[in-house]
Design a protein around this nucleic acid. Structure first.
Length: 308
DNA sequence: ATAGTAATAT
DNA sequence: GATATTACTA
């Protein structure tokens, strides 16, 4: 006798907006060049629970490849021993595809109305990410969308073009969805001038987590095992480098919301193991080159420079 | 103080 | 050249 509301949004929630992001305090290592400098920093004892040790064995060494960098400006010949890790200059944030996907997801779930850098940053829950970083990227993202809408869109451009009915990207669609308020139960609701209440929830709210979690500021700099994200270079043969995922699993996946059962597909044996979380699946998406071969070195987040 | 835009640096 | 970073401005 109750609870007969519209399963629409409810169902959709599980379909289109799994967004477990909010349910899981992400922790991506944004340190890349910092790592070098971080070496200087003694493994902070933070000792946090995240210190999972599963990482020890990973012998992933970075081989030449990325040349840029190395950081360290500077000079010191070596020896420096004391330097505040928090005052380190952010070298250059690498918006890895996964990170970008997260960003888009956050924006999509927030709605253009709440798609403010600060909110996005908070929703992303990515440590090390600062408002400026998000703002910058947000700007780029907006431009990209604008280009798409303003110009008759043609994402693909010429030629081929697959079915894209309206040509609106999922991201764009979500972006247009302006739904700031979480869901308002019968009773009181903020004066929302929007007649639409698509979806949007801010479970990641600080108050929502009654645990030792600082309500303000999410600048946690504790990640001993930090290494340059293994971009989309997973390559065939295994060797997934999802530090983020690994950590989550190693940690016992603290994200176990009751009611969330993943459907284990036991059919495909070729695939082997798949992502446990739906969002993880998405994370992997975008980084895939194609099974065989195609290795994409420079992947442009969004084709901003289209034809002019 | 925050967000957006522009210019700049790598 | 593209991307990210920084500064200025609203």
């Amino acid at each position: 006798m109750r609870e007969e509301e519209e399963p629409s949004w409810f169902a959709r929630f599980d379909e289109d907006l799994p967004a477990p992001d909010e349910l899981m305090p992400l922790s991506q290592s944004l340190i890349t060049r910092d790592l070098a400098a971080a070496f200087d920093i003694p493994t902070h004892g933070g000792g946090g629970p995240l210190s999972g040790g599963a990482d020890g064995a990973g012998g992933q060494e970075m081989n030449g490849g990325a040349s840029s960098a190395a950081g360290s400006s500077g000079g010191n010949g070596g020896g420096n021993g004391e330097e505040p890790a928090r005052t380190l200059k952010r070298p250059r944030l690498v918006w890895t595809p996964q990170l970008h996907k997260r960003f888009v997801d956050a924006v999509a779930h927030l709605g253009i109305k709440n798609a403010v850098p600060k909110t996005i940053m908070q929703l992303m829950s990515v440590d090390g990410l600062t408002r400026e970083n998000v703002a910058s990227h947000l700007q780029k993202y907006r431009l990209y969308l604008k280009r798409m809408q303003g110009l008759g869109n043609g994402g693909g451009g010429g030629g081929g073009s697959h079915s894209s009915g309206s040509g609106t990207d999922a991201a764009t669609e979500h972006l247009f969805a302006t739904g700031p308020s979480p869901f308002l139960p019968p009773g009181r609701g903020p004066a929302v001038a929007d007649p639409y209440t698509p979806y949007a929830a801010m479970p990641a709210h600080p108050a929502a987590h009654h645990h030792h979690h600082h309500p303000q500021q999410i600048a946690h700099f504790h990640h001993p095992a930090a290494r340059p994200l293994g971009h989309y270079g997973a390559g065939p043969g295994g060797g997934f480098d999802h530090g983020f995922l690994s950590r989550a699993v190693a940690s016992g996946a603290p994200v176990g919301p009751p009611g969330m059962h993943h459907r284990m597909v036991g059919g495909g044996a070729a695939m082997g193991m798949m992502a446990p979380s739906s969002f993880a699946e998405e994370l992997e998406l975008g980084s895939r080159g194609g099974g065989g071969g195609g290795g994409r070195r420079e992947l442009t987040l969004f084709p901003t420079s289209g034809e002019h």
